[in-house]
């Protein structure tokens, strides 16, 4: 596992966009609802590469992405000509 995501499942509305865009299909919709009655996204981070696709489309901005190494995308459904995804930020 080169990457990892943390989903704030209590704030998730279960729209499922992250599930669709995940290139490694590591995100699923939970069968247990959160306190707002939504079935949130959940993951075991199995094959996660930390590509941040899920976070980019999340309308609630509740997915945090962590990654091993330099912080550059290792595997992603990449997006046009950009080498470095503009939305991901390095953190020291």
């Amino acid at each position: 596992m080169a990457g990892k995501i943390v989903i704030n499942s209590e704030r998730c509305k279960g729209c499922g966009l992250c599930v669709v865009v995940c290139p490694r299909k590591t995100i699923v919709i939970s069968g247990i609802s959160n306190k707002n009655g939504y079935f949130p996204a959940q993951t075991d981070n199995g094959d996660c590469t930390g590509c941040a696709a899920c976070a980019v489309v999340c309308p609630e901005a509740i997915i945090e992405v962590l990654r091993e190494g330099s912080g550059r995308v290792i595997v992603a459904i990449e997006p046009g000509k950009e080498k470095k995804p503009t939305l991901t930020k390095e953190k020291a």
């Binding site: 990457g3 945090e64 962590l66 091993e68 939305l87 953190k91």
Partner: peptide, 8 residues
């Protein structure tokens, strides 16, 4: 691991 994406 480093955080590469978080809420701004």
């Amino acid at each position: 691991m480093k955080t590469v994406f978080e809420r701004t």
